[in-house]
Design a protein around this nucleic acid. Structure first.
Lengths: 158, 158
DNA sequence: ATTGGACTCATACTTTCGGGTGATTTTGAC
DNA sequence: GTCAAAATCACCCGAAAGTATGAGTCCAAT
């Protein structure tokens, strides 16, 4: 705040000083040369140019920069604290679901396709299909989405 | 583009015109009055002031507005509140998800097929496909299972 | 009055899913 | 060692899901 004020005062002082300096220069010119008829227009022109540029310079220096604030919202998802959800052995048994089948179910619930699950588990897609088929039978559902829904509802998945 | 160029040319013309005009005015003054000894300094001062303000005006008109860009990264933590079936309007807005799309998403998460969703909402299967497609785009996912997963993780669904 | 978004539906096409069937190999229990 | 369950994989086929594109209606904001 004070820095800026000082800066502005400084500019005003500079402005005054340069004005005085130029006047002196002109006075000196008056002594040295006779003002010729057509030199006067040139004279005015030079002064005009000088002060125009001075004005431009002042304006640039004094103008406040417009501040544009851009807020970028960065989404951060909170990962579930239950990182490794251990399958409840008893729950698995009640449905007769095997470990491998539960693994497939788990990856299914993460939104992976059969192909992706196969790659993840180093198996063939056909195997995943077999597992998922049996899984659906045991869960008495017809689709993977239903399987996920039922699994979560019954506590089979987190 | 051409508008701006024209504007600048116009300013230059105005500038030259005013300069010429002032010179004429001074010539006229020369005829009317004898230039007094001390009037000269005042004279110069007036010219200086006029052209300084002209310069300032020019600078303001011609200079691109200074923009100072401040980028603030705001981190938004998204957790999923337990309970409410009601879609959080704000959350929907952040992804640009429409009400209808959310309905489809909701029924999806219950394990319904597109046909079942269509029947439930008295719509055509194609419409459901359109909604789900747009939904997947907005959620940046490729499958319904992923959509469900992301929706639950981000609190879009209970 | 025009524009734009949301919603609706359609057609055509590709990909994935799921069912059905059968087969081989591991593995653990008896 | 035998035997059953689990796990692995294959092929086919129909159904469902998803993509791409276009288009018509409605409604609200300009």
């Amino acid at each position: 705040m004070f820095g800026k004020m000082f800066s502005k005062n400084k500019l005003v002082i500079l402005y005054g000083a340069s004005l005085a300096g130029i006047l002196l220069f002109l006075k000196w010119l008056e002594f040295r040369f006779v003002i010729m008829d057509h030199a006067f227009e040139v004279y005015i022109g030079v002064i005009a140019l000088i002060f125009t540029s001075l004005g431009i310079w002042l304006a640039i220096k004094l103008s406040k920069p417009k501040t544009e604030t851009i807020i970028i919202e960065k989404e951060i998802y909170i990962s579930k604290p239950a990182g490794d959800f251990v399958p409840d052995e008893k729950l698995l048994l009640t449905h007769g679901i095997s470990k491998r089948e539960w693994e497939v179910l788990s990856l299914m619930s993460e939104g992976l396709s059969n192909q992706e699950i196969a790659s993840r588990l180093y198996l063939s897609v056909n195997t995943i299909k077999t597992h998922s088929s049996r899984l659906f039978e045991k869960l008495e559902v017809k689709r993977r989405t239903q399987a996920i829904e039922k699994a979560k509802r019954t506590g089979l998945l987190a």
